[in-house]
Design a protein around this nucleic acid. Sequence first.
DNA 1: CTTATTTATTTTGACACTCAAATAAAAACC
DNA 2: GGTTTTTATTTGAGTGTCAAAATAAATAAG
Lengths: 399, 399
Amino acid sequence: MRPLKFQIFERVRAAGLIPRVEVAKELGISPASVTTLSSELIDAELIEEVVAPRGKGEAARGRPPVALGVRASAHYVAGLKLSDREQTAVILDFAGNLIASHAITRQPGALATEDFLNDCERLLDLVGAKAGIRRQGLSGVGIGVPGFVESAGGRVFWSSVLADGDVPLAAAAADRLGVPVTIDNDANLVALAELWFGAGREVADFAVVTIEHGVGMGFVLNHRLYRGAGGIGMELGHTKVQLDGALCRCGQRGCLEAYVADYALAREASTALEGVEGDEQTMVELLESLYENAKGGNAAARSIFRRAGRYLAVGLANVVNLFDPALIILSGERMRYDYLYAADVLAEMDSLVLKAGRPAPPIEVHAWGDLLWAQGAAALALSDLTETLLAPAREGAAR
Amino acid sequence: MRPLKFQIFERVRAAGLIPRVEVAKELGISPASVTTLSSELIDAELIEEVVAPRGKGEAARGRPPVALGVRASAHYVAGLKLSDREQTAVILDFAGNLIASHAITRQPGALATEDFLNDCERLLDLVGAKAGIRRQGLSGVGIGVPGFVESAGGRVFWSSVLADGDVPLAAAAADRLGVPVTIDNDANLVALAELWFGAGREVADFAVVTIEHGVGMGFVLNHRLYRGAGGIGMELGHTKVQLDGALCRCGQRGCLEAYVADYALAREASTALEGVEGDEQTMVELLESLYENAKGGNAAARSIFRRAGRYLAVGLANVVNLFDPALIILSGERMRYDYLYAADVLAEMDSLVLKAGRPAPPIEVHAWGDLLWAQGAAALALSDLTETLLAPAREGAAR
DNA sequence: CTTATTTATTTTGACACTCAAATAAAAACC
DNA sequence: GGTTTTTATTTGAGTGTCAAAATAAATAAG
């Protein structure tokens, strides 16, 4: 089991402000332990007592509780989300409050590692300037990229934003930025963000499915991010939903991604919209036009979304049949196209989920955009930071 | 983390005979702790010291180690595997040694709960007679059935061998047999058997896929059986491999099971063998004949196996893409039909697995039959028993 | 045969974690 | 002011674990 000190800290952060009694009750431990350990945390300047004047309505007898809260100014971390078209950065304080954010757009395409690091540096300095925090003032940086990332080892095996393969990105970035760096797959970041700031406070097991340039999944298992046995994420986007199906970026056929991701929609869009519009430019505009046409009743355009939705239903149903999460969250830029989660798609998914007593899990759509993703990256850094701060001692025998 | 005492016990059982030093080394703990805790285990008569005369070749200086071993006669447990056509039972001692086994065949079909319990009772008495152990001498019984089973709650939501739905089988069987009973899905049992007696000693994360009357999967995650967030197993057999595909027992379309399970093969077999043979009787004979014909070159028969193999490849590839286990084990009666794991099926699976640095996991076929499954059931009882024996005290705050 | 060496196990003392029970503190109620 | 109620802290004890020292049991060397 996680050390109690750690659990108390996490509880305090998750709650925001919470008196000791509550912590003891929620964790099922004795108040004595909470006192002891929280005073250590206070000594370490990680949390603090917050005197909240008791409101009128809640007048009560007895000694009033004194709330604990994370000492927000104890540390600051940054989160960077580098994607194909947008680069977003945030700075959070130790309590998870958003201090500053910054986003810039860029030309799509893979970058050499050096250029990528340059972008990180520039982005970090820009958002740092907004927050009034220099690099030395940061305790950690989290970086999220799409693709295959081994977070524990800090390596990127492949990413659409990196021209090189098998890059030790965490080490390289830490070297360049002069700050500890943790990296992860972008879908995992959203899951982490939901775990820290969103649905995860209520639910122990849930899946976050992201649909952008690719399809990814982050999975939270028992309040923890699960990265699969191999340490790389769970590649939902490349699970096969059709034998000998559509061609995927990865070179294989029948991947879920090849039906649902934006490039999959776009390549059919040009066929469907032939003659309808003149000259298309970017993929985003093409998709926008496809969406408008579908809303307007264009049968071919509709069928594109319809097919994508059906295969998405298959992919999600398989996740449910295997894991049975309590909740599925859909996230990503493409969630603007509500055809992907229209009522009939959800109904189809429901009809593909095996009924064994329980109903299918609810599906929520969180179209919160890149800011949330960057916050997830910052959460990654925070998570890493607290791990370091609270586990100074021995490397016990783990199993 | 699991209490050290527990870990030491498991280590001793996994190893068979192992000196204290080895235990300390493998668990990464101090020899002092091993001495203290193992002497407690010895006092509790769960393990014992075994004096093994040192062999000639391994002559060495220093005090010779004294091995620890599980006290085999400390307890006896039974495992029952009740399936559609066969009912198998084993009795194991506390060290996991097979003491006796017994199998009977029966007419396929679902049973009323009462009749099912009668069968269990009869089977248990038969195997008990062989072993010379009466029911009072048993410390636990594990029962495995196909279908949807919630092991923790002891309930069967649906099973092909039970006519009733949502049966509190563990309680009912414990009541009838007068012995503590644990139940589980049969695929989980095989995974447990592999975990205890087979591949699991080497590998931390692996999947066991069973193909019989249905398709099931048991998944071992970090040396522990994982039953999904909801506590029911992972329903690989009902993951969808084809939109609007073949009809499955469960009423849905496109389930893996509907292409790979025996009934799926059988229903196409009658078409393929039309005119080839006269009157078919049982499904087993039909499949046997189909297999012979395929070997003999019958194109239609071959295509049946070929299609099943291809969809199996899809199902397995999806498991790999999501979990990335270190090993996949195929088990079950139908493994006799080697078309299901012919070279081209494995190659096809490999081609469907996303390449991200690592190669696809190896696939092993363990066609060990029902005996192993029953041993898995006994392992379930053993697992439950040791849990009870070693955790007499507090119900700590778990998280 | 005696002693040195090597390896395995046990003993000892200490530290860290956690809790139950007793005590202190702060407020409302009478 | 005294009592009640609720929250927080202190105290003392129990448990789990380990490092270091001591002990045990064997072989090798002289």
